[in-house]
């Protein structure tokens, strides 16, 4: 790990010396050549092109369709079913609005109503 002494930041109250730590790990790294190209592009369309090239846009898993043929897996035991119910409850409490928001993106009832009330 490479460390450099950083001079620009005031020392914290503890008086402990701070260092700038050069990052060494990044899973979601931006590939240097790919990103260098992107840096020069300021258009939103450029990003979409890249994503299509990467295959992100059209990628589907078909996971909602029940598999037509399956290996016999046996029934879940009582304890497995209870565990599944617990996990479904945990999952439900993390649901977000992603599913439906974009459908309403162009129909924003609330902000116009502020203008109406101001008049």
């Amino acid at each position: 790990m490479k460390t450099d002494k950083h001079q620009g930041k005031p020392a914290p109250e503890t008086g402990v010396e701070r260092t700038t730590t050069t990052p060494e790990t990044a899973v979601f790294r931006e590939e240097s050549s790919f990103f260098a190209t992107e840096q020069t592009s300021v258009s939103a369309a450029g990003v979409m092109t890249n994503q299509e090239a990467y295959g992100a846009v059209e990628y589907t898993t078909g996971r909602d369709e029940a598999p037509a043929r399956q290996r016999y897996q046996g029934d879940l035991s009582e304890s497995q079913l209870r565990l599944l119910q617990h996990l479904e409850r945990l999952t439900y409490s993390l649901h977000g609005p992603e599913e439906s928001l974009d459908r309403h993106s162009y129909n924003r009832p609330f902000p116009p109503s502020i203008r109406i009330d101001r008049m």
Binding site: H6, G8, T20, T21, T22, P23, A26, E30
Partner: peptide, 16 residues
Amino acid sequence: IDLSHAQEIAVRHPYQ
């Protein structure tokens, strides 16, 4: 792991 742009952030926000 670090953020993908952590190197840029670390210049202004040195972290442990």
